[in-house]
């Protein structure tokens, strides 16, 4: 494997995926399907894009596991915080 050119090609492929997923999200938002489905699908696509950037551009895939833990820690806290916010809203409703 050519060490000089292979990473460059790899980064271009990731970029193509990111651009493709972004366009897919834009097109999905225009489709006449229920709003809830659009929201879930578009946010799912955004999560995939964020994962691609973190794993391949920020090198989390190859780096020390400790960095992955640091990256995931706020997501756990966010899930807890949003869980509390939305559960209290549901209770009020």
């Amino acid at each position: 494997m050519n060490a000089a050119t292979s990473p460059t090609r790899h980064y271009f492929i990731i970029w193509a995926w990111l651009a493709g997923l972004m366009l897919a999200g834009v097109l999905l938002s225009e489709l006449p399907i229920p709003k809830v489905a659009v929201v879930l699908l578009v946010l799912f696509l955004s999560s995939i894009k964020a994962l691609l950037v973190a794993l391949y551009y920020m090198h989390l895939k190859m780096d020390r596991r400790l960095l992955s833990f640091i990256a995931v820690a706020p997501l756990v806290l966010i899930a807890l915080a949003l869980g509390v916010v939305f559960s209290s809203k549901l209770i009020r409703l």
């Binding site: 972004m22 938002s29 946010l43 955004s46 964020a50 950037v53 551009y57 920020m58």
Partner: peptide, 22 residues
């Protein structure tokens, strides 16, 4: 600098659909 820049990109990846599309 690259790590910071990618983070800024990730934030926009979520802001764009939330603010412009949905």
């Amino acid at each position: 600098a690259g790590l910071y820049w990618h983070f800024v990109d990730i934030v926009w990846i979520f802001l764009f659909p939330l603010v412009y599309l949905l």
